[in-house]
């Protein structure tokens, strides 16, 4: 390595470091506030770490708040949405990638169109529709709404992954004796695992952190999801930052676990060696 490239590498690393610090700092602050005892929160000024650490907020949130219920609700809603959306988006993305059919162009246009509206516009009509169906104030209702909103984007995402898999692989499988569906299941699907993982992750996080619809469609604690639950720490007269941050830290855990679980599928290069190269 010559001097120039050492310098370049160092600069490059430094830039990445700056970015990582910048991106992670709010999370650090979240953690810091969550372990700061209430009496120190306002009295110590701005410090990187409190002089005394305590887990009292965590204890309170877990034992005396409705947080465990929010947490469970969020798990159900985000998990179900992620699975359903990924399943449907795989099928529709595959169809868009591989088949030509009548109305394909308009279907794609329509799906793009749905992505153009600010969601706020849709809150009232959706409430109107779900209410007679008994789907307001219910986790099922949320899953239905989240699924509907996430499918178009997830479909495009999956389509791009399918597009990246050479058509010849399926053709080879078909000549080898596979039906279209077998070729999909045995050849294409295993190669799309990174895409499936990415889609699962994307939809899960989106549903996990969705606030607007959760707030509008759900009233009361029993069906509230975690973002709505966070707001309960804001009362008319004060914000209980410590507990709120503790809840926030807890809410990060499933998302982190989830990505830890799928990250090995996110690693690219699974299709290497399929065609020439």
């Amino acid at each position: 390595m010559n001097r120039y490239s050492i310098f370049g590498t160092a600069l490059h690393r430094l830039a990445i470091l700056c970015y990582v610090v910048f991106a992670l700092f709010p999370l650090f602050w979240l953690l810091k506030v969550s372990v700061t005892p209430n009496d120190l929160l306002y009295s110590e000024g701005v410090r990187m770490w409190p002089s005394r650490m305590s887990f009292e907020h965590f204890r309170f949130v877990l034992a005396h708040s409705a947080f465990p219920v929010f947490f469970r609700n969020s798990m159900i809603v985000a998990g179900a949405t992620a699975v359903i959306v990924t399943l449907l988006a795989s099928l529709s993305g595959y169809a868009l990638s591989r088949f030509t059919f009548r109305g394909k162009y308009w279907l794609v246009a329509l799906m793009l169109l749905t992505q153009m509206f600010p969601l706020v516009m849709l809150v009232a009509p959706i409430f109107k529709m779900l209410s007679p169906l008994g789907l307001t104030n219910s986790l099922t209702g949320l899953v239905v709404v989240y699924t509907a909103f996430n499918i178009p984007f997830a479909t495009f995402l999956m389509q791009s992954f399918f597009d990246g898999i050479p058509k010849e692989l399926e053709e080879a499988a078909k000549i080898d004796g596979a039906t279209q569906f077998m070729a999909f299941r045995q050849i294409v699907l295993p190669l799309t695992l990174p895409g499936i993982a990415a889609t699962l992750g994307f939809v899960f996080t989106a549903a996990w952190s969705e606030l607007l619809f959760a707030l509008m469609l759900i009233s009361g604690n029993s069906a509230a999801t975690f973002p709505v639950g966070l707001l309960t720490f804001v009362s008319k007269f004060s914000v209980d930052f410590g507990q709120m941050m503790a809840a926030g830290v807890l809410a990060l855990i499933p998302a982190c676990l989830f990505f830890l679980f799928i990250q090995r599928y996110l690693v690219q290069g699974l299709t290497a060696g399929a065609v020439k190269g």
Partner: peptide, 17 residues
């Protein structure tokens, strides 16, 4: 194709990765 009992070698080889 599966009912024709033929085999094909592709230019890109199309091996299952």
């Amino acid at each position: 194709p599966k009912d024709r009992d033929i085999a094909m070698v592709f230019q890109s080889y199309a091996l299952y990765p």
